[in-house]
Nucleic acid binder design. Structure first.
Length: 479
RNA sequence: GGUCCCAUCGACUAACGGUUAGGUCACCACCCUUUCAAGGUGGCAGUACGGGUUCGAAUCCCGUUGGGAUCACCA
């Protein structure tokens, strides 16, 4: 049977980096096996909907290079792919569960449930729906139940968990998992508003959509027994499960907003490359071969193996992400960098620059920055006159004859403005004066860039052009 | 607290039951040098603990400790 997997986010806001990794693993797994990658929007909680979130997910995934074969946008043979458009399907299936005795009606109010939990907590027992004492089909009897339903009394449908025995299932990354059924709650399957909860919708959809492998975060592990029981209740074969290790804060708790950026958008906005972020995320919990760090998405597809996914959570180390981004920055072509840098420049009001020139500046300066978007500021002098001059740097290298040294220097600059000629000229000039390179290179750097740090000076001069260099040097000649 | 999951350098990880426990980030030192980087070389640093099984355990089993997740008419 061919592989079908799904990424099933809830459109309640931005896409979390952990979510992106889950989407990535699904995508890699699907592509590796020549299977199908499905996007399904789980919007059954109407109170938490965020406008545009679903579209944003698609866009962010696309930015990251993750494609879906079936989605709300593209459609597909098992649609609709938005759960709020499938409510009739869930109701019908809930009815089947009712008919077979795998689920039951309950009429408790929020207050009654709260009181129940409070009593249990006081008694020191696990807070779990006790169907023997609450208001439901069993305690009320069939007749009363029918009456309440006929009267339109608010009701939910709950899963009837066995009171004994155990529920077991296999997990590709964790092996067999066994849970005593009595410890699992009688979860609500269909809410009083007629919408299903995650448990029902997810099982019904995964089955109906032919999902073969459920690859999701570890936070779902504790509720998987419920899902397994639902498959049993429907008489369906459950899919394979693979619960992914969590992404962690430096203090090892679940990666949260409180301790740094968690939205993919944040990293995108900061200027991280899509391929670097994806590469970094992929290696958080999975490792194809320990002797390399850099992998293209195609290489990852070729090597991806769920069995090699780690069990323990992984700390999201921004420092390593930065290193990886810097590594990607150094490996990209001038054209590629120019195309990405140009809009960043325009965003900052720097216009009239060609993509070709932007790319060359990026190549010139990339070994000194981590993110491409540092370049507009770090190399401001490549796009305009230096905005300011480092006074301390000037003072440090300015001596009595610096002015004459500079004014003589511009006299016989090479006609053919190449790196080799500029460097040759400088060395010859210094040799004639009986001086060392350091006697002039700092005053020159100061005049041309205004800063004490930067790329190789002759390379900088070459790219800037003779005219601009002369002009800037002359402007700094007076003491 | 109940249930479940997890445990190799500070971080990410590698290691058919047999390795001086390897690589990467970070950190430190040195080299290179035109500032700052990058790069090169080297270094620091780990199998949580206790029992077993075995000729031999990071690896298998049990326990302890520690960490995490989850316990809604949210996903």
């Amino acid at each position: 049977m061919s592989v079908r997997v799904r990424f099933a986010p809830s459109p309640t806001g931005y896409l979390h980096v952990g979510g992106l990794r889950t989407a990535l693993y699904n995508f890699l797994f699907a592509r590796h096996h020549g299977g199908v990658n499905v996007l399904r929007i789980e919007d059954t909680d109407q109170t938490r909907l965020v406008e545009g979130a679903a579209q944003n997910f698609i866009e962010v995934c696309r930015w990251a290079g993750i494609e879906f074969d079936e989605s709300p946008e593209k459609g597909g043979p098992f649609g609709p792919y938005v759960q709020s458009e499938r409510t009739e399907i869930y109701r019908g299936h809930a009815q089947k569960l009712l008919d077979s005795g795998a689920a039951y009606y309950a009429f408790d109010t929020a207050e009654e449930l709260e009181a129940m939990r409070e009593r249990m907590n006081k008694a020191g027992v696990a807070a779990k729906y006790d169907r023997s004492i609450m208001r439901n089909q069993f305690t009320l009897g069939e007749e009363e139940t029918r009456k309440l339903i006929a009267e339109g009394c608010p009701k939910v449908i709950r899963l009837k968990m066995p009171l004994s025995g155990e529920i077991r299932f296999g997990d590709i990354v964790r092996g067999d998992i066994i849970v005593p059924a009595r410890d699992v709650d009688d979860s609500v399957l269909l809410k009083s508003d007629g919408f299903p909860t995650y448990h029902l919708a997810n099982v019904v959809d995964d089955h109906l959509m032919g999902i073969t492998h459920v690859i999701r975060g570890e936070e779902w592990l504790p509720s998987t027994p419920k899902h397994v029981l639902l498959y049993q209740g429907f008489g369906w074969q459950p899919p394979e499960f693979a619960h992914l290790p969590l992404l962690l804060n430096p203090d090892k708790s679940k990666l949260s907003k409180r301790q740094g950026d968690v939205a993919v958008e944040d990293y995108r906005a900061k200027g991280f490359f899509n391929d670097a972020l994806v590469n970094f995320l992929a290696l958080l919990g999975w490792n194809p071969t320990a002797d390399r760090e850099i992998f293209s998405i195609d290489e990852m597809i070729a090597m991806f193996d769920l069995k090699k996914v780690n069990k323990a959570g992984a700390v999201f180390d921004v420092k390593k992400l930065e290193w990886m981004n810097a590594t990607y920055l150094r490996s990209k072509s001038s054209d590629e960098l120019g195309a990405i840098l140009l809009p960043m420049l325009e965003e900052r009001g720097i216009t009239g620059i060609s993509a070709d020139y932007a790319g060359k500046v990026a190549v010139l300066l990339r070994e000194r920055v981590t993110l491409l978007n540092e370049i507009p500021e770090f190399g401001d002098y490549m796009f305009a006159e230096p905005a300011e001059f480092d006074a301390a740097y000037r003072t440090k290298h300015r001596v009595a004859d610096t002015s004459s040294l500079l004014s003589d220097f511009v006299l016989h600059l090479p006609q053919e403005w190449t790196l080799q000629n500029i460097r040759g000229y400088a060395h010859k000039y210094l040799e004639e004066k009986g001086l060392a390179l350091k006697n002039i290179i700092h005053p020159l750097r100061h005049a041309i860039t205004g800063k004490s740090v930067g790329a190789g000076l002759f390379e900088t001069m070459e790219l800037l052009g003779c005219e601009k260099c002369v002009q800037r040097i002359k402007a700094q000649i007076p003491d």
